[in-house]
Every structure is written in C-alpha cells, then in structure tokens.
Nucleic acid binder design. Structure first.
Length: 469
RNA sequence: CGGAGUAUAGCGCAGCCUGGUAGCGCACCUGCUUCGGGAGCAGGGGGUCGAGUGUUCGAAUCACUCUACUCCGACCA
C-alpha cells in the first residue's frame, strides 16, 4: 500500500515513465502575440509559453508546461524540508471560523479573508494561512516535551482576497504555498528551529537556481520578533533592498550539514552581513557597516518569509506540553512560508532573455528537447525516434519536437519555453553522422558525432540537477 | 479602497466620431509546394460585437444602467 502511494506521487510529479513526450501529441499552447494585460516579463512569458491561463482576476489554471515546473519546485522544497527534519502533512483549504475566533484573527483579518457559509449556514473560510489549524492539531496530540522539537509543514492552496492582484501568479489571490510550523519548549529551542529552517531555505533556493538573500524583516500582522524575508534581486522587484555584495555569492551549506547539530554559526555568518528591505533599512547603519564598493541597492522580489512568533497562537489556543519538571509549558512557535506560485515567475524574472525563458536545469519543464528538423522524412524520423529512446533510457527528462513545422518555428518554440538544451537532428547532420547541441543559456552550439550525443548531454545535464549540492 | 482606462473570432487589433451586409493579421481546417531561425500559394470554418434597457425604420456604432478585466496609488507569500 505504502509503495503504491509513493509511486503514484513520483508519477504525478516529475518523470514521464518512458511515455514518449511527443510535442505533436502534447498540450503546449504557445502564443505569438503578447496578451495585452501582461505587464512584466515573467507574466508575458508564462502566458506565451503556455504555462498558465487566467480564469478570473488573480485565479490561474496551470497548464501542463507550467504545472511541470511547479511540481519540480515542489519536489525540491519537499526534499529540503524533509532533510531539515520537517514532516509533511496536508490540511484542508476550507477552515472553520470557530478556529479563527480562538486566536482572535477571525475579526482581525479583514476583507482579505474569503468567508463562506455552508448549506447549514455554518461559517467557514478559505484558508489564507494555517497557524490556527496546525496549532489545533498539535494541541490535540502532543502532550509531552519528549515529542519536541516538532516541525510540521504542508503544501496547499491558499486564498487571500487581494485588493489588487497583478503580475500573473506573482501576486494572485489563489496561490500555492509551503508553510511549515515549528513547536518548541522554549525560546532558545525555537530559535534553533528557526535556524534549521533558515539553512533549509538557503539550500532550497540555491537548488532552484535562485540567489535568494535573507533580509531582516518586519514581522507584520503575524507578530513576533525574529523574521527574515527571502529576496531575489530582479529589476521588476516590488521593493527596494539594501545588502552587502558578498551575500550574492556566499557558499551554500552542503547536504552534509548536520541539522541535528548547532546551526547558529551558519546563521550568524549569513546574518552578520547587512541586508534589509526598504521597510526595515537604516541607511546610517547600512553605510556604516558596508564598505562603499560592497553596497548593493537593488529591486527585489520576496519569495519566502520566516517568523519566530513565540506564544502568539499557542497561548490563546492553549497549546502546551508537560515539561520534565511536570509543569505545563506553553510552546514556542515559528512559521515558515515559501510561495511556490510566486517562485516560478521569480525564477523567470531572474533568468530570461529576449527570446524567452531560460530555465535552470533543476526546475526546467524538460531538461532537453530533441528537435527533428524534417518530421515526415523516413530516415530522419527513424534516427530521431532511436535517439529519443536512448536519451530517455539514459534518464533524461526529454521532450521530442516531432511536429511537421519549419525549423525556425521549432527553434523559436524551444527558446521561448526555455528548455536548457536543444539537441538538433536533420537530414544534413544525419548524412554526416552528426547532431548539434544548443545551449539555451549561452546560445553556444556544438556539433558532435551522433554516437556521442547521449553521453555528452548526460554529462552536461546531470551536474546541473543540483540534487547533491 | 481612491484615480484612470478597456471590453468586436483562441490571441493581437481595425471599424464607432458621421447608425445601413462585421473586417484584418496570427492561430485553426483542406490541398499542393516547401523545410537549418516563427514558410509560400489556393481554398475554407469560426462572432448573441461583455450584459441589459432605451432612442431609431434600422444600433458594434448614439444614451443610460450594470458586469468583467487591466493599469497607477495605498496593502500583501
């Protein structure tokens, strides 16, 4: 039973299980014209590359190409959350209003919360976040300090009725978020939990090909006194950020990091360099602590936010455990969010050119596309079919452009949707026994013997999967 | 929530001022020719012109009401 579920999950999340991904039979509605509503580059490219379709203001369908990227992002997040010791579960999208009355947020939250009634006129809401519900689960089952620390997370759709949704899925009303919640006996241990998540975040964004910088942040309505926003630099960012240049190329903690050990040195190392958003920046401090040639002032996009908020929810909701002294203690909590549906456009903002998206291999919808330059020609078809089978057998996540289209159209599609490598085979190359590999990122092309193509492509792609950084 | 706009085929647009057979490009279908950077020719299909009410012999076009969507600002993963 367990293995059955596990394999289902894998099937739906990444590989194609040998099923040929022929573009002629796939669902990839690319657009040549830019829909007029799309203002920023990631939104335009996501629409043009057939990744999303808007269904109403702030509500999007994820089409196959987009969904595949979203699931690859999800898989990386899950792997790094799990590595850090967090445990995945799944809570519903709809929550009872009563739960939110306990914390006092039912009245406090305002119109951003979508409130709904069922047929019995009971009050519900579409969850904008899950502190209340996870606290309810925790208090029901966890009674002893021996069960701490505990960090539970889920990846679920949220809804916040934003006044003004915009920028495609960057600021949508319905969005997919990973939210983790830590429970600890006291503040020191809660801070250690915060540091574990901090390191997990460093690794998570790096694996997605993003340089995300943790910046001290305002705790806002969630409350608490320790908080970082994770910001990637992009010209289209919504806020101005200020940081030390060395943060941009610091070494990421490796996979051998001991999450059961003391991570404070790593945390201190990263937070000792100045980094703050415009809401929090102290210009005098920025200039005093960062040498002039190391000062970065740029636009940034928030792709995550972590908080320590103490007993803000555990207190009113009575989430406590019995300590080894026999006394009941209110637990200290933190929450840790990553907006998956925002990360995807953020990656595009950070990585594109005038021809389209440039996906990092680790989140690319396909790692490479085989372009058959003369679909319908018997010899070329046979050679491409064979090569495609070999590439797939080598474990590469391949798309096969077998459409009967002019070459230029295929190149344009491949560039637009941003597949990292194009492997190009036509009658001309076939005659001389050669194929061409185009690197999407650099534009570089290399011609090599057909027989070497699989090994070469594997050699290019495998190190970039970032599975083992 | 304040301000400004837009709504005509899947997408991008013209037509509206001055009321009279609903058009163009891309996409789609058929055929032929092409095939290394978004092909060419020929033929074809697709529309309650956002909704409602009014004015008129006649409304995509004029008037009023409504709805949806977008942009700028304040707010947010």
């Amino acid at each position: 039973m367990g293995s059955e579920w596990a394999s289902t999950k894998v099937l739906s999340r990444s590989t194609n299980f040998g099923v040929p991904m022929r573009l002629s039979r796939y669902f990839l509605p690319v657009l040549r014209d830019v829909p007029k509503e799309a203002e920023i580059v990631s939104h335009r490219l996501m629409l043009r590359a057939g990744m999303i379709r808007q269904q109403a203001s702030g509500l999007y369908s994820w089409l196959p190409m987009g969904y595949k990227v979203l699931m690859k992002v999800q898989k990386i997040i899950e792997e790094e959350q799990n590595r850090s010791g967090a445990i995945e579960l799944l809570m519903p999208t709809i929550q009872s209003a009563d739960l939110w009355r306990e914390s006092g947020r039912y009245d406090a939250y305002g119109k951003e919360m979508l409130r709904i009634e069922d047929r019995h006129e009971r009050e519900f809401l579409y969850g904008p976040t899950n502190e209340e519900m996870i606290t309810d689960i925790f208090r029901t089952y966890v009674k002893s300090y021996k069960d701490l620390p505990l960090n539970l997370y889920h990846i679920q759709w949220k809804f916040r009725d934003e006044v003004r949704p915009r920028f495609g899925t960057m600021r949508s009303r319905e969005f997919l978020m990973k939210d983790a919640y830590s429970f600890d006996l006291d503040k020191d241990r809660a801070v250690a939990a915060y540091e574990r998540m901090f390191v997990a975040y460093l690794r998570t964004y790096a694996r997605m090909g993003l340089t995300a910088i943790p910046m001290r942040a305002d705790t806002g309505p969630i409350g608490g006194d320790l908080s970082h926003e994770w910001i990637i630099l992009a010209d289209t960012g919504e806020s101005q950020v200020f940081c030390h240049r060395d943060l941009l190329d610091k070494t990421i903690p490796g996979q051998d990091t001991d999450f059961r050990g003391d991570l404070k040195p790593i945390f201190n190392d990263w937070t000792s360099l100045y980094a703050a958003t415009e809401d929090m920046v102290d210009h005098a401090e920025f200039e005093a602590s960062v040498p002039e040639d190391k000062r970065v002032s740029a636009r940034g996009i928030e792709v995550g936010h972590i908080f320590y908020f103490g007993t803000k929810y555990s207190e009113p909701m009575k989430a406590s455990v019995t300590g080894n002294d026999g006394k009941e203690t209110i637990v200290h909590m933190g929450s840790y969010g990553i907006g998956l549906t925002r990360v995807v456009p953020a990656i595009i903002e950070a990585s594109h050119d005038e021809n389209g998206i440039i996906w990092p291999v680790s989140v690319a919808p396909f790692e490479a596309v085989l372009i058959n330059l003369k679909a319908g020609d018997a010899d070329t078809d046979a050679a491409c079919d064979k090569l495609y089978a070999e590439l797939t057998a080598a474990g590469l996540d391949m798309l096969y452009d077998d459409r009967d289209q002019p070459a230029g159209s295929k190149f344009a599609t491949a560039d637009l949707v941003g597949i990292p490598y194009q492997i190009i085979l036509g009658p001309r190359g076939l005659k001389s026994g050669e194929v061409e590999i185009k690197h999407r990122k650099t534009g570089e092309r290399e011609t090599l013997p057909l027989a070497n193509a699989v090994e070469r492509l594997k050699g290019l792609i495998e190190p970039q999967r970032m599975n083992d950084i």
